[in-house]
Design a protein around this nucleic acid. Sequence first.
DNA 1: ATGGTCGAGAGTCGA
Length: 265
Amino acid sequence: MKIATWNINGVKARIDNLLHWLRESDPDIVCLQEIKSVDEAFPRLEIEALGYHVETHGQKGFNGVAILSKLRFDEVNRRLPGDDSDEQARFIEGVFSTSRGALRVVSLYLPNGNPVGTEKFPYKIAWMKRFEQWAQDRLALEEPLILGGDYNVIPMPSDVRYPDNWLDDALFQPESRASFRRLSNMGFIDAYREVDDASGAYSFWDYQAGAWQKNNGIRIDFLMMSPEASDRLRSADIEKHVRGWEKPSDHVPVVAHLDLLPVVF
DNA sequence: ATGGTCGAGAGTCGA
């Protein structure tokens, strides 16, 4: 089974790109972030025509997440628990049936948090704390669980080309990094780092100032796997070539192969 | 030093 996460930066602007990538890469399950669309406007018909089920959690203008899956959804949950006043669409969970039982997959879009010193940064840190609590609870189920998303965190200096440029950025603050580290320490494995030392591997290059051409990148998109999922991890890749396509997203897909077979009804 | 590029969607806001 192949699973992917990709911040597509606007599903309507990226639909041709997305369809081309789905045909080329042929993932079974895809976590999308920054769909920037309400659910009713999501271009589901074209995606369904390629054999995917589609579940979305969108909002007007920005944010928004989705899961595409060749497997039928047994269950879908929207919104990260822990704050009913949080209206931002950043979290969707799907449950699927596989040869090894249930597989849970989350598509998450963690708050950016910039600029530090505004209310945006404490919102990011509070969201991360909620996410840690939720992840800890889910871990107790001892099921294969994959948390795919744009974490908006640079975990280590080896995940950024020019660390000194990010010292004042929310993505590289000690508090952001510490929360990500706690997620790792509770048992979630970064699939890409598990199969590659990941040093100098990036998943995002800014549109501005020729960042792509200069390989001025950061690695902030992750497939984090519970022990029961990482036990089945066969390979992981960053599909970097997609950044060189016409009209690209500023992020590229991160993918992994698991020794799990879908149960098709 | 400043702004540099995008997407969404109708004026800026978010990244």
